[in-house]
Structure formats: C-alpha cells, structure tokens
Simulated scan of single mutants.
Amino acid sequence: MRRAAVLLYRSLALYTAVALLGACGRSEADEGRVPPAPVGVTAAAGSSTSVHVMWNAVSAEPRISVYEVYRGRTKVREVPGSEHMVDVIGLRPSTGYVFTVRARDTEGRLGPPGREARASTPAAVAADDRAPTAPGKAQGRAVGSRAVQLSWSAAGDDTGVVSYDVYQGASKIHSVGGNQTATVVTGLRPGTRYAFTVRARDAADNVSAPGTTVRVTTPGTDDGRDTAPTGFRATTHRTDGAYYLDLAWVPPRADGVIAEYQIRLDGQSATSLVYGGKAPRDRASYSFYVGRDAGVTHRVRIRAKLPDGTWGGFSAERTVTTG
C-alpha cells in the first residue's frame, strides 16, 4: 500500500512538472508573438480642442485588427487596423498632452506602446470666423518610389495657424503642426502621378482655401495588381420582377482605410460605392439594379480608391447573364 502511494505521488509530481513546463513554453511562445510597438508616432494640435495623432502601420502575423490610442494612461480611441491616424477631440485649450499607441492583433494579443508623442493645444479664440490665407509657393519632389517631400510658404491668420492639412485630390492624407512648412508624405505607389494641395487651419477650426497644386510623379512602375480587389465574384438574382447584380470581393491590403469603390459595367462607369461608416476589411459585397429583362449578359469589374487618394487596379472582369 505504501509503495503504491509513493508511485502515485511520483507520477503526480512528474505530471505537474511536465504541465508547468508546457504552460511556460506556451506563455513564452505567445509572448513572442505579440505585435511590435508602433513606430513613427507623432502628435500635432489640430485646433484648440483637438490633436492629430499619426503612426506607421505595423506589419505582423497574425495581422493587426485594432490600434489603441492612449492619452497618458487613458485609452481614448480604438482605430481599425487598416488606419494609422486619428483626430483626438474634446481636449482642453492651452494644455499639454502625451499620446501613445499600441497594436492588437486578430487573436487579441496587445503589443507594447510606441514612444510617447507630445502636443500642446493652443489657447481658445472667441468668435473667430476668419479662415487663414492659403499657403503659397508650394513645391515637391519624389524621395524614392513611395514618398514625396513637400514644402510651402506659411499661411497668414489673425490668431495664428495651428496645423497644415495635406490633400491628394479630395482626400486628406496627412497633417503637420502650424510651425512646419515642409513634410514627407509616405505610403505612395511607384510610377504614379500625384496632385497635392495644402490647407491651413487655425485654433477655431477655420480652414483656408487650398494653396497651389503640386504635381509629382513617383519613379518606378506599378501594374496595379497589388492594389486590385481579389476574389471578385458576380451573380444575379431576381426580386419583384427586376434583376440585380450581386458582387463580392476581398478589399486590397493598403496602408489605411478603403471606403470608396468604382464599379464598371459593360466598359462604362456604372456607380460609386462609398461607405459612410466602418468600411469592410476582410470581405465586401454590394448589390445593384440592372434591369427587368432576362438573358442580358453583363461584364463587370471593380476598383478601390486607395488611402493615398489614387485609384487602384481593376479586379478581374466577370461575365454574368440575368436569369
């Protein structure tokens, strides 16, 4: 009986040791897979009550699902993994703030914070409804195949310029503090022609007219394949005597959110799809009316408006017949 008890004790001890070793091994492996800290974190006041926070996209596997933005130790925003900038609003005028950003992957692992970024909001200005003057003398040049350096002369304002917003076409893609008159815009495409403008913003959120347009073409080539939607499918269905075209696709991977698509039907632009809320990241779908006749064959394809303000490549073309 005593010998059996000793054997049982030894077995239990060995089992416990193995279990602990296994748990330690899993813990170390899990910890080794947490996302890295975001780099390139910057913060610049956008007005007397807001700060624009930016960072570089984190590459990780599993991929990033959410970025957490902290003001001091308080989490103030969660941003989808496809975005890497945010305006933190509701702040106090004439106040200094410290921001950090952490990445969380699709399995829920939260990485360490990036370096601290500091910004101070300017004093509030009462009854200011006068916008700054437009920035002038804008210039630009390509810095490699995926970046452009921009510069401009300072805008004027009766209370002072707080920030400058950089636009590519109609899309705001970058923002810097009001004491800066130059910046480098990254995340661009090789072999692509860009048209940039700069607008000035004051503490009351008054925005100037755009300055002169800067046109720059990045060197290299881009066939559009990496920017085209994939897994594109097209089917039809009939409802109340009418036929609809049902589309489904996987959005292209991009350094930012994709909220707009263009659909071409039979070689012509048929419709634009703009997501007003949270845009889909893993799988998207859309359905639209194509007529009441059966036996009509259509050719359809789709492309995305990328975060840099340009259109990506077209998806594969699909042919579908109503009925």
Score class of each variant (00 low, 15 high):
residue 309 G to Y: 11
residue 140 G to V: 10
residue 142 A to T: 05
residue 84 H to S: 15
residue 203 A to W: 00
residue 196 F to S: 05
residue 39 V to H: 04
residue 295 G to I: 12
residue 199 R to A: 02
residue 105 D to R: 04
residue 2 R to Q: 10
residue 212 T to G: 15
residue 18 V to I: 13
residue 245 L to P: 03
residue 80 P to C: 05
residue 15 Y to K: 15
residue 99 F to A: 04
residue 132 P to S: 07
residue 124 A to K: 11
residue 320 V to G: 08
residue 207 V to S: 05
residue 231 G to K: 08
residue 111 G to T: 02
residue 197 T to K: 03
residue 140 G to L: 10
residue 155 A to Y: 03
residue 246 D to M: 01
residue 87 D to W: 15
residue 203 A to V: 01
residue 162 V to C: 03
residue 141 R to Y: 12
residue 104 R to I: 01
residue 91 L to A: 02
residue 217 T to L: 06
residue 302 I to Y: 13
residue 129 D to R: 14
residue 277 G to E: 07
residue 96 G to L: 04
residue 95 T to G: 01
residue 307 P to G: 07
residue 243 Y to Q: 06
residue 149 Q to E: 15
residue 202 D to Y: 03
residue 178 G to H: 08
residue 7 L to A: 14
residue 176 V to N: 01
residue 179 N to S: 13
residue 316 A to R: 07
residue 129 D to C: 08
residue 128 D to W: 09
residue 236 T to W: 09
residue 200 A to G: 00
residue 165 D to I: 00
residue 89 I to D: 10
residue 114 G to D: 01
residue 182 A to T: 12
residue 93 P to W: 06
residue 282 D to Y: 14
residue 196 F to V: 06
residue 306 L to W: 01
residue 162 V to I: 05
residue 251 P to L: 04
residue 33 R to K: 13
residue 199 R to T: 01
residue 182 A to I: 04
residue 263 I to H: 10
residue 25 G to H: 10
residue 323 G to W: 02
residue 219 P to Q: 05
residue 85 M to P: 07
residue 1 M to V: 12
residue 97 Y to N: 03
residue 23 A to R: 07
residue 125 V to M: 12
residue 313 G to Q: 09
residue 312 G to S: 09
residue 188 L to Q: 02
residue 11 S to I: 07
residue 25 G to N: 12
residue 294 A to T: 10
residue 226 D to Q: 14
residue 291 G to E: 04
residue 136 G to Y: 04
residue 170 A to T: 13
residue 165 D to R: 09
residue 59 S to L: 12
residue 147 A to Y: 02
residue 135 P to R: 05
residue 206 N to W: 07
residue 216 V to H: 08
residue 24 C to W: 13
residue 250 V to E: 13
residue 111 G to F: 00
residue 310 T to A: 07
residue 90 G to V: 06
residue 208 S to A: 03
residue 191 G to T: 09
residue 191 G to S: 09
residue 227 T to D: 01
residue 205 D to S: 12
residue 79 V to M: 06
residue 263 I to Q: 07
residue 148 V to T: 00
residue 272 S to H: 11
residue 67 Y to V: 05
residue 141 R to I: 09
residue 314 F to N: 04
residue 294 A to H: 10
residue 278 K to S: 12
residue 46 G to N: 14
residue 238 R to D: 06
residue 118 R to S: 11
residue 135 P to T: 03
residue 14 L to W: 13
residue 56 N to W: 08
residue 92 R to V: 06
residue 296 V to M: 11
residue 200 A to F: 03
residue 321 T to R: 11
residue 148 V to A: 01
residue 223 D to N: 15
residue 152 W to F: 04
residue 102 R to P: 02
residue 128 D to E: 15
residue 21 L to Y: 08
residue 210 P to G: 00
residue 255 D to T: 08
residue 93 P to M: 05
